[in-house]
Every structure is written in C-alpha cells, then in structure tokens.
Design a protein around this nucleic acid. Structure first.
Lengths: 130, 130
DNA sequence: TTATAAGTAGTAATTATTACTATTTAGAGG
DNA sequence: CCTCTAAATAGTAATAATTACTACTTATAA
C-alpha cells in the first residue's frame, strides 16, 4: 500500500472520531482538510483501511459506520437517536475464538450489533410521558 | 394488519426457505406463484412481517437476508460462497437479557453475524492447495 | 531522474430501497 | 348480501448508496 495524503487524512478523521461516523460524515470532515477530495476516494480508503484492520467497519441497522477501535468489542444502535454506542461485556469476550472452536468456521471478523433504546432516549421518553 | 394473498405467499416462501434468502431471491420465488407481484410489495411485506416478528431480518455483510426462525440465534456469513449459516451456541443464549441487565439499554433485537469461511469452502480451498 | 503502477478527481453507471399514484380489495357494519 | 372505507397493490418514478470508469497525478523503486 502506497502512501497518500488523502488516505492519511481519512485515517486521521476516523481516529479522532468518538461517534462511529458514517461515510457521509467522514466525507464532510475530510473535506475540511482536503476540500476537493472525491467521495469515491473516501469510500476506497475506508474499505482499504478496514480490510487492513487499521479501522473497523460496523454494519448497523441504518448502514455502515466506522470505528477507530479495532479490538473485539460490540455496538448498540439506538432506534430513536440513531447513534451507535460501544458495548464491552465480559461474557462476550473472545467470542471469535469460542465460535471458531465450537463451530469449525474460520472466523475473519465478528459484527455484533444490538438495536435498542439508549439511556438518554429512555430518559427523554419517560419525561415526555409524565 | 389486513389479509392479503401477496403477504401470505411472501411469508410462505420465507417459511419454506432454509437458505436465508435475500430480497431478490424471495422476489423470484414469490413470482412463481404470483407472476405480476411488484417488487415494492415484496419489500413492504418483508418489512411488515419482520416488524411483526413473524420472520427475522438478518443484516449481513452483503446486505439483508431473511430467516424463517425468529427465536434468538445467530449467523455466519461465508466470505467465499456468500451463504449464511445458523449459529446456535450455549454461551450466546439469552444475550439480549444479559445486555439489558449489564448496560441498561432497552434491547429491541440483536444482530450477531460472523464473517468467516464455512466448512465446505475450507475443504475446497485445502483441496485446491494440495 | 525517470519509469511505472498505485492513487485520485470527477463523472457516469449500477444497485438497492423507498415514494408516489391510480386502482383493487379485505372485511366491518349495516 | 350490499356498501363503504381504509389498507394493500401494481407499476413507475425518485432517491440514496456504492461502484466503475477514465484521464490525470504522484509516490517510490531502480
């Protein structure tokens, strides 16, 4: 893989994002630094970077999101505010290994996403109902 | 929800499928029984049926698949043959409940999909290499 | 310094999904 | 049985997401 300024900035943007952004949002953020970058370039680099395990592609209920964190952890998608949250739970650790052992499937990656309602939206909902 | 022949056939097709078909394939199978059914009708009914928990929508690496089985279980997607397989493992049972207890997120549904290489494709790969 | 293959911008094409509209139909209430 | 009405449909158009294509640019190896 050859160096390019565009890929560096795409990586940098994802690395500095705490909100699991979608392609569209990443594109906007990258454009602040490279105004004439092409959307195709962002797509290509997000795909090469995640194939190279430098970032992680999350498959969610509303499409693809990206995560700076590549170690095995999982996500929750809020059906109200549409945000994606990290989920780190002990009983889910080493899931890849366990699945490989138990099923014989050669695991490449795991995508575990929960659809639900986040703390904030539960609170707001309750307040409206009172 | 009012009865319709179209929805009945869509449900029937998914119910009789053992292969976690995608919309396109479901559409083809339904057309054998209702040749002039509209693709939009298939989409609409797949969405209403899964919202009503009569079938399950699986979010996979290559898009949406559908499953006749609605109880909590998980899936593996083969990166070579692109098929989706059921995964039933004890240590993953009651995941919804556990997540709700541990995170406080109100869980609506869980989507756990593993990307890997299935038994058959591992075998074929090995044979080619010998 | 130069050759070349990887990467890019800009655009076109493709694919998946939803929206729209006129028409049909299930089924509730007379 | 009728009749009414809202739900559902077929067919088409529109939208959104992603990939493909092409001429140009650039990293980097020799």
């Amino acid at each position: 893989m050859r160096y390019s300024k565009q890929r560096e900035v795409v990586f940098e943007v994802v690395s500095k994002s705490d909100d699991h952004p979608e392609v569209k949002k990443i594109y906007e953020r990258v454009k602040e630094k490279i105004p004439n970058i092409s959307l195709g370039t962002v797509y290509r680099n997000l795909n090469t970077l995640s194939a190279d395990n430098q970032i992680k592609k999350i498959i969610s209920f509303d499409g693809e999101h990206f995560d700076k964190t590549t170690y095995e952890h999982y996500h929750a998608y809020c059906d109200i505010c549409k945000n994606v949250f990290d989920v780190n739970l002990k009983f889910l650790s080493d899931t890849s290994e366990k699945i490989e052992k138990n099923t014989g499937i050669k695991v490449i990656s795991c995508n575990f996403i929960i659809k639900g309602i986040c703390h904030n939206c539960q609170k707001n909902k309750k307040e409206r109902e009172d």
